[in-house]
Write a protein that binds this DNA or RNA. Structure first.
Lengths: 249, 249
DNA sequence: AAGTGGTCTAGACCACCAT
DNA sequence: TGGTGGTCTAGACCACTTA
């Protein structure tokens, strides 16, 4: 249990970065699960044989990245994707007037397919690997807003069957987290305007060829590992995609 | 010149937050201009009568917000919007294949108008206040990609005439910064898919009603003061709007 | 060589939460 | 009351830049 960081001869950069790496490894390995507390700063300082300040600096960065959450007087916890905390970190569609409403999903399709070249590239798989394909329709205040297709590595997400998606409460990333211990911590999206197809138009309640927002997303877990590829179509009459940049002073 | 922070009786929160506020005020007041160095950490510690660690924590946050930039061994500098450093912080349109290219602007229109209700609301002005309206066409690798209309408070931006926009090298935010000492530090955007009008379609080289990405942006300077309202239309055949969320561990 | 930011430590005290 | 994170200090040493 002694993970003391000795060997100052071989130096892998600053100490606190090494501590951060050890913590990240613990998180990726499931040593501490979402919503659980990690050991106190003084315990970690003992365990890694560094000063509290160094541990604090490592935790500082992980907290800034929303991977850990500090609560004064209680402890430091592994972040979760619960509705209240994370909904709008990865979900950017809001009402045109700026108000936010809970999106309600309806499962349209669940099936298993084989990865084509494009899917394989996005998910870091080989062509022909088994992939889970899920299609959902999202409504806000009863109005259809978004239809999206999710593609997941069937090997990794095997535990998720149709019922998992049908009966879920809350975001899919919460589902991944609770059922698989898999944390989505980063997404990369590419947005285009396209004319909607007949089928998707019908789902969204607009005529074929109406301009809609296409969002291609790749979601990553620790170590920049892609875990989900998603393609959405958003009806932007009445709703908008909100994109804020930089922090405030 | 003694700005010593005494009066611990009236406590406006943590010391380092007060230091941060003082630094931000100095920046907003133009005490240190873009690309200039602020005083060294030890000087600031003396001046504010706090320890270096406290100054460092204040600067840490400003650096995390890309308002200051540290350079080991040289000093801490006020961030600029120069092409190399800032182009892709606020500019999100890239080639479909993920490659980035320098957008080349062409000035289409420069005029002064009166603010209508919507403009006044966005820019925190009164109806009828004078506003500068600038229209540009952006090309990447020769191909027209984006046409956008910028609206600015004429009182604040009076120094910018047509030639300023015609002859500029680099992003408009660099222009604001160099000519007016005005720092854009945050933007908020709302994205929609719309059918392009005939005139804008011609500029972008697509047929009328082609789906294009509409980006409405409000740009803010210190203290959440809006300084620019912008409405863009992006041709997303061949290019995409890139939107990344959260940091990596 | 002098000055800057970067890292690390050790300790004090505070604010908050649980019990 | 004891344990947690939050703030603040003081000092040592390192890495880097400039002259």
């Amino acid at each position: 249990m002694n993970e003391s960081i000795s060997t100052p001869d071989i130096h892998h950069g600053p100490l606190y970065k090494r501590v951060k790496r050890l913590l990240t490894q613990g998180l990726a390995a499931g040593e501490w699960k979402p919503n659980e507390a990690i050991p106190s700063e003084s315990k970690l300082a003992q365990r890694f044989n560094v000063s509290i300040g160094t541990v604090r600096k490592a935790i500082d960065e992980l907290a800034a990245e929303n991977i850990l959450v500090r609560q004064q007087g209680r402890g430091t916890f592994v972040a979760t994707h619960s509705v209240n905390r994370y909904l709008y970190h990865f979900y950017h569609v809001i009402n045109e007037d700026g108000t936010k409403h809970l999106p309600v999903p309806e499962l349209l399709l669940y099936r298993r397919i084989k990865a084509d070249a494009r899917l394989a590239a996005h998910l870091n798989l080989d062509r022909g690997d088994r992939v889970i394909h899920v299609r959902n329709l999202l409504r806000m205040q009863g109005k259809p807003v978004e239809v999206y297709d999710i593609y997941l590595d069937a090997a990794r997400f095997d535990a998720l069957d149709r019922e998992s998606f049908e009966q879920r409460k809350g975001p899919v990333y919460q589902l991944y987290q609770e059922r698989l211990g898999l944390n989505v911590i980063r997404t990369s999206e590419q947005l285009r305007a396209v004319g909607v197809g007949a089928e998707e138009g019908q789902l969204l309640g607009v005529a074929a060829n109406t301009p809609v927002l296409q969002v291609e997303r790749i979601a990553y877990t620790y170590h920049d590992m892609p875990v989900e590829y998603r393609c959405s179509l958003v009806n932007t009459t009445g709703h908008v995609y909100q994109s804020d940049q930089e922090a405030r002073p």
